[in-house]
Nucleic acid binder design. Structure first.
Lengths: 201, 201
DNA sequence: GTAGTCATGTAAGAGGTTACATGATTAG
DNA sequence: CTAATCATGTAACCTCTTACATGACTAC
């Protein structure tokens, strides 16, 4: 049920089309939730029939129109209810860690390459998240600015601080993954060195 | 497709029933993959028809039987293929982080309680993972001992090291989450203090 | 005109959750 | 005998992924 709350939360910044939401949800903008457009459009329709959002047909060019969605009072209430609900934790399911646990089934070089890919992946993520946190703290982040325009000034610091906190969390996770994979590579090196000594002896 | 590889990996230690696998996959034993029995039993049947595992009917008590599954050579080959495949990374989807990003929509006390729950959750996980890593390194972990019995002695150190590495990774992640939530609580305290000063002025 | 972007959908299928359902075995 | 554990299933439902599909608009 988080998809709809992620969308409602986005819509508190400004009215958007499904396309806009999809953009914010995808790698390019690196947000805290991801979803393909095939999930977004039907969900917006459902939220509309449930009264959480209102759609408005907006002209684009001469002939075509697009549907711009705004959050309704009911939607805001749903968001606030969600805020007070406690979230459960999903079951542990980490394919990369699982694979690492069985690296003995493959070559040292393959293990090393998996760990190197892990580092590359989380380095990319770390850059994105650090940049986003920085853009938020320095109040350059476009969506944040739109959000602040509508919020009372005494809330600005709080809004900025919480957004930055969230991205800091993702950055911290990325750093932990990078350090782990680096220790992993060192371990693979040691194990390989030890094996070479033993086979020579 | 990781469910079947997690099961194949487990079955390299020793033959097991679906019930045994479910136990290893659940909180009690705190493994790296989780799945309910409703997923395990049908998947074992599919893996059997595909030749990845072999079932053997074993008596239990007088009347009843249970099905004990062993990994086949084909299953081992599938596992080794999976080891060389590179894993993709799932889309980012973190409900707790998302909620934290919008804490301004609720009271400081609610925000604090969410973060405290986060700390409690990852502290429990950290204990489990640290204990498991310790049990592995000191070669007290029952499943590991069964696995070592079947493995050539020169591989023992490697097997132990990779298993411990995986649990270390989960522990590192848990530590990162705890530190993040602690910084979050400090932030909430600061924001609340600032707000009090402002409303008094 | 044509390529890239904007915009919105549908549908099949995989993977996972929750609930329903059953019955034997074992320890007290 | 009775409760807990062992053991195995099915089914409805939800979420997400991947692919298929279409068409208008904009910049060149």
């Amino acid at each position: 049920m988080s998809l709809r709350h992620a969308m409602l939360a986005l819509l508190t910044a400004e009215p958007m089309t499904g396309y806009d939401i999809a953009e914010h949800f995808n790698e390019a903008v690196a947000f805290l939730w991801a979803a393909p457009h095939s999930q977004i459009y039907p969900e917006l329709r459902r939220m509309e029939t449930e009264g959480l959002v209102q759609a408005e047909e907006v002209l684009r060019g001469g002939r075509a129109t697009k549907r711009r969605y705004s959050i309704s009072d009911e939607g805001r209430a749903a968001l606030e209810r969600w805020m007070t609900d406690s979230e459960g934790y999903p079951a542990e399911r980490n394919a990369h860690r699982l694979k690492a646990a069985y690296f003995e089934l493959t070559d040292f070089s393959v293990a090393r390459e998996h760990l190197a890919a892990h580092i590359r992946h989380y380095n990319r993520r770390l850059d994105q998240w650090r940049e986003t946190a920085e853009a938020i703290r320095s109040r350059r982040h476009p969506l944040l600015l739109l959000r602040l325009e509508k919020a009372p000034p005494e809330l600005h610091d709080v809004i900025v601080a919480y957004k930055a906190l969230a991205f800091d969390g993702e950055a911290a996770r990325a750093r932990a993954e990078i350090e782990w994979a680096q220790r992993g590579i060192e371990l693979v090196d040691e194990l390989e060195a030890k094996q070479k000594v033993n086979t020579q002896a």
